[in-house]
Each structure stands twice: as structure tokens, then as C-alpha cells.
Amino acid sequence: MDTYRDDALIRGTLMEYWPLTDEQRSIIELCKDFAIREIRPRGREVDEADVVSPLDIFAAAAKVGITDFMLPQEYGGGGFTDVFTQCLVQEQLCWGDPGIGNLLCSHGFFADPVLALGTPEQKETWLRPLTGPHSALTALATTEPGSGSDSASIVTQAKRVDGGYLIAGQKAWISNAGLAERYVVFAKTDPAERPKGVTAFLLRKGAAGMTFGEPMKKMGQRAIVCREIFLDEVFVPASARLGAEGKGFYGLMETFDISRVVLAAAATGAARAAYEFALDYARTRGQFGKPIIEHQAVAFRLADMATRIQGAWLLTLHAARQLDAGQPATGLAAMAKLTASETSMFCTWAAVQTLGGWGYSREFPVEQWMRDAKLEEIEEGTSDIMRLVISRNL
């Protein structure tokens, strides 16, 4: 049941709506093959290791051009800077394993604010080392113990001093923290302001006053290690500030529009994996003298899974196209993330339900995928926040 399916019902007939280039087809096939050979076989092992990122898989992906595919060619990347292609790739990789797939694409989350706010010199300095076969991990540091989805309420401060800034504060739930070599950190240069006081900075691991907590124990997506970051008067030169003072929040919101759509693709990939596994199981598992797929309750559950995945996938790609066209898409991005993340949670639950006791055991991967899927309803804005964003953009 670990074989790859390319079900037209779920994948959608992309050619009918959005013709793909030869280059897009190539990167999709590369990622599909990598997901089958390298990611899916390691999912359970990585999950049980708990607080150890699979850096060997990251290195293998870097060698074939997966970890930098989304970076501009002018800085050595693969050149697939459009959100649409990023979604196609993310969906394939997260079909293999949601945590590993998100880990392999983590450069995109770091690069987006650099591309949105950085100078040409900053882009060259901070993005080019992320390309090629020896790329190191990166991290985006926004969340704090007292501020999750409300990024305007961060309290980490950046005080102007001679030649730069001193940053003091604490970040929490930061993916790749402690492992990453490069960080984008958001801090308040004007504590009296909310969004207008947020500024972005570039930091390197090893900066004096920058330390890390122990790896956080997580329900799922354990391929990505999260830690707290403690910033004790960390000096950052003025040249490492991204954009003007007070512009960090707006760069972050632009980043969120992209990252939410890409995470919607990740959630759709996980949902598709659960659906395919449950479908294969239902076709081969007998109960009361016939395959369980012939029982109405099971068949209807699978129908619900297929329908929700199709809707989530098309909405995600529509949002990606809007972003690539330069159109306002904040509400649409939130719709895509909300729909896809809740679809992923439903489909992984439905897969566990279809397998019954076996689904609840670690004999099969669906229980892990159910734990993995929960994060998609929380990260980059909870489902409640997504509904609020949508209501404000009606």
C-alpha cells in the first residue's frame, strides 16, 4: 500500500486548466521519484526518532536540486519562483511524509522575506549559499511564547545603537532553530506601535547572546525540530536589517500569503496519501464476506475524502495563480489554507477510521499522518485566524 498512485480524480486534470511546461513536469517527476524512494520509506523511522531532523535526506535532496528549486536563478537557485510550481512540488513531497516534505522546502519560508524586503546585496549574500549540494538549514523566527498568530503583538525588541541594533527577547516554536545557520528574526523597533513597529533582521548562528532551548516535544511532523531562541542583547549591524524600520510586518504578511498557499499544498499532499492508503486497504481487506469498500459507510467515507481533496487542491492552485498574477489574494490564501488543512485532518482521521484497529496502531502510517495533519490547522495561522482573515477580506 506504499505504491504511488496518480489518480486523475484526485490530482485533477491540470492540463485542462493550467498547461505545464516541460521544466515543471521535470521538477514534479523528480520530486515524485524522490518521495517514493527517499521520503516515504523513512517516515516512520524519523517520527519515532522524535527530535532528530533527517539531515541526510535534506543533503540528498540538495544534491538533486530540490531544496533550492524555489530560489531565483540569479542567485544560483532552480528558478521556480512562482507559487504555482512551489505548490506542485510541495504536494508531491508531503505525499511522501508531511514533516520531511516541509523540511525540504524550508528555504522558501526563509527566502520569501529576504526577496520581499532585501537589497540586491543582501539577496546575494544570504540566498546564494542556500543553493547547490552543500546547503545549510535556515529558519524564520516570528512566533513568541505570548504571540502566535498575532504577529503584530511580538515583544522582542531591537534597540538602535551605534552601528546597528541590540535585539533582546525570546522566540518559540521555531522550525530548524539550533540546526539552521541563517535566521530571519522579527523584532519591534518601536514598542509603542503594533504592526508599524515590526522590523526584520538577518542573523547568523553563533552570534553573541543567541542561544537555544532544548528540542520541543511535538505531536507530529517530528522531522522538523523546533526550539526556543533566546536573544540577549544580540548585536546586529544596520546592514543586516531587512527593509526600512517598521516595514517588517508588511513583508511578513506578504510572506504569509505565499506560505499559507504552499502549506495548503502540503496539507493536500498529506490528505491524498491518507486517501490512497485507505482506498487500497478498503479494496483488499475483507469483512462479512466482501471487500469493505463495498460497504456503504466505507464507500461514502472514501467519496467524502476524494471530494474534499479535489476541492482543496483546485482552491490551492487557484490561490497560487492569483498570487503569481500579482493580484490581492490574502483572503483567498486563507481560504486555501483553511480548506486544505481541515481536509487533511478529515482525511487522515477517515483513513484511521477505515483501517479500524489497524489504523490506530503503528503497524500502518495513517495514525502518524493524522498527528502530522494537526499541525497544518495551527501553523502560519490557526483555522480560527484563517476564518477571521477571510471575514475581513470578503
Rank of each mutant, 00 (worst) to 15 (best):
A152V: 04
G65I: 09
A139P: 05
P145E: 05
P41T: 09
P120Y: 07
F34H: 02
T142V: 15
V114H: 01
C105T: 15
I100S: 02
V155T: 15
A136C: 11
F109C: 09
V46T: 11
V64D: 01
D50V: 13
A61L: 10
I100C: 03
G43Q: 12
P72I: 10
L127I: 15
A136D: 13
D68C: 13
R160W: 05
L130M: 15
D97S: 14
P113M: 07
S135P: 06
A49F: 07
D112P: 00
S147E: 10
G118M: 10
L137V: 11
A116S: 13
T131S: 12
G77K: 05
D82M: 08
G79A: 10
S106C: 13
L117S: 02
G101S: 11
L137T: 03
V114T: 06
G96K: 03
W95K: 05
E74H: 14
Q157T: 15
C105V: 12
R37C: 03
V46F: 02
P54D: 04
R37W: 07
C87G: 08
A152Y: 12
Q73P: 00
E38W: 01
E121M: 10
L127N: 03
G78M: 10
E121V: 15
P54Q: 03
R128T: 14
G79D: 08
L127F: 08
C105A: 10
W126H: 02
Q122W: 09
A141E: 03
F58A: 09
V83N: 00
F110M: 04
T81C: 12
V52G: 00
P54M: 06
S53L: 04
K123V: 13
W95D: 01
S53F: 02
R40A: 14
G99K: 02
L88M: 09
L137S: 04
V155R: 13
G99V: 06
S151F: 14
L71H: 05
G146E: 14
L103R: 02
V51T: 15
H107G: 03
T119G: 08
T67A: 06
G78I: 09
G132R: 06
E124M: 14
A49S: 13
E38A: 06
Q122T: 12
A111P: 06
A35K: 01
G77F: 03
S153N: 14
E38V: 05
L127R: 09
A111E: 05
S149E: 11
